[in-house]
Amino acid sequence: MNLYEGMFLLDNNVVREDWNEAKATATGILEKHGASVTTARRWAERSLAYTIQKRNRGSYLLVHFEADPDKISIMRRDLELNETVMRYLILTCDGVPEGEAELHEAELSADFSVPEPPEDHVVDSDEEEESEEGEGATEEASEEAPAADAPAEEAKAEETPEAEEAKTEEAEAPAEEAAEASEEQTEEKSSEEA
C-alpha cells in the first residue's frame, strides 16, 4: 500500500445539487478498488484557465488515500469514464501535509456548508461564431486605416521585450509607406477629376 494524493476537478452542476454526492462519486471510485481514504476536502471553486468540457468553472477536491499500486491503473480507467470527474491527477506523496487532517475533520462537521458555485457562462458554438465575426470586422477596419494602427503598435512595443520591438518597427515601416501610397493615389484621382 502506498500513499497517494489525488486532485479531482468536479462538475459544478453536480456540486450545485449536493457537494457530498459529488465528493462520494470520486472517493467511491477509489474505495471500490480497495483504497482507504485518509483525508478528502474541498480545495477550491474557481474559474478554469481554459474551457474544459464546455465549462469555465469547476470545483476541486483534494484527497489523500492509501492504495495498492497495481489498482491505480484501473482507478484511472474508471475516473476517465465518469462524467462528474472532469479531470484528475494522482501523485504519490510522502505524507499527509500538516493541517490537512483538521480541514478534513472540519468538513465532516454538521455546520459545514459548501457555498453555491456561481453561474457558469457556458460557451455555445453559435456564440463562438459570432465573436469570431466580430474580430474579423475589427481587423478589416484596421486594414482600411493603416496610419491609425501605428500608434497602437508603438504602445505595444513599450510593454513587450526588445525582440518584439524590432518586429513591430519592421511592421510600422510598410504601414507608413502604404499610407503615403494611398495619399498619392487620392491626389492623382483628384487631379484627374479636375
Binding site: R46, A49, Y50, L91
Partner: peptide
C-alpha cells in the same frame, strides 16, 4: 504542467 492539466494555469 500538472497545474495546466488541471486547468489551474493556462497553456496559452
Amino acid at each position: 504542467k500538472r497545474a495546466r492539466h488541471m486547468g489551474l494555469l493556462p497553456f496559452v
